[in-house]
């Protein structure tokens, strides 16, 4: 499997990258870690004429705390996120999720920007970012803008990012201290996309759920923010009934495809199972 020919560009600033994308038009594609794009190019399902490699742009690296946000540069890799003491302390769910992406080699190369920006519903980070109410910073010809993860995904590989825009940063509100979290991913083997997966964040005080958020991976043509499922937990003591209500609400919004990893009905039901299990683990982790 050999990719078609293309021209390679390696800008050193976001400005240059954006200018290149604008100049080259539809036939140009930004390249981050490349582990989604390059295999597709090798099968020739994608054949961009220009690749704009973002690896030379140092400003896209790094994981920082900024007031009430964590800012993660688009080119931060999964292994950098796994190793980050800052994330381990403030957003441990990112480490848990990152460890379930691909395999060790892929995590060295795979970036958060690539994972959230390409619009593959099988990617794990988008649902997590919806769960965390992250914002994506986009740089384009006309300057910068921010789009909430919850408003970013339109369909498979169809997102709010314009062709000449680059996703430069992911900004995540710092969650409450003592929150409970879990990313539960059902897959056949290491390296697989999820049959279904659920990201859950909970805040519990005096035994009662004060806030909850749930994201779902690979059970529709976009990642899903399961608002009703989360609402089914708020105000409850997260007992069996509440969990069942949340799981049912999550299943209700899925629209999975049938594929070799199971028919749609299975994936719908596995959404419920992963939501239930994620809630149960998150509850155990939450400071009550």
């Amino acid at each position: 499997m050999i990719p078609a020919k293309f021209e390679y560009h390696r800008p050193t600033s976001v400005q240059d990258a954006v200018a290149l994308l604008a100049q080259l038009g539809e036939e140009a594609h930004p390249l981050a870690g490349g582990h989604s794009l390059i295999p597709v190019m090798k099968t020739r399902l994608a054949a961009p004429e220009h690749l704009v490699d973002l690896a030379g742009i140092s400003s896209l690296k790094g994981i920082r705390r900024e007031q009430d946000h964590i800012a993660i540069g688009a080119m931060a890799t999964q292994s950098e996120m796994i190793a980050s003491p800052l994330l381990a302390e403030i957003l441990p769910i990112i480490r848990e999720t990152s460890l379930l992406i691909g395999d060790p080699q892929i995590r060295y190369v795979g970036t958060i920007g690539g994972n959230v920006a390409n619009g593959d519903p099988g990617n794990d980070m988008p649902a997590l970012m919806m769960c965390l109410d992250a914002e994506y910073q986009l740089a384009g010809r006309n300057g910068e803008r921010r789009v909430r993860a919850r408003a970013f995904y339109f369909g498979a590989y169809d997102t709010a990012r314009q062709n000449d825009e680059i996703l430069t940063e992911v900004r995540i509100p710092i969650p409450a201290k003592g929150h409970g979290y879990a990313y539960e991913k059902l897959k056949r083997k290491v390296g697989d996309y999820a049959v279904a997966a659920a990201a859950v964040m909970l805040t519990i005080t005096n035994g009662t759920c004060r806030a909850a958020s749930i994201g779902l991976t690979n059970v529709a043509d976009t990642p899903l923010w399961a608002e009703a499922a989360a609402q089914a937990l708020v105000g409850t003591r997260i007992d069996r009934t509440a969990i069942a209500n949340a799981a049912n609400a999550a299943e209700a919004i899925t629209n999975p495809a049938s594929d070799g990893h199971g028919p749609a009905e299975y994936r719908r039901k596995m959404t419920g199972v992963t939501v239930r299990r994620a809630i149960e683990r998150a509850k155990l982790r939450a400071e009550v």
């Binding site: 056949r188 083997k189 290491v190 697989d192």
Partner: peptide, 28 residues
């Protein structure tokens, strides 16, 4: 536990890559 080369009704071969064809890793 998982290997299969299957075909749909049109004779399209399903899962002819290591993404789909089940080869377990050291973990499984």
């Amino acid at each position: 536990m998982g290997q299969e080369i299957s075909y749909d009704a049109q004779g399209n071969v399903m899962g002819a890559s290591f993404m789909d064809f089940f080869l377990p890793t050291a973990v499984e």
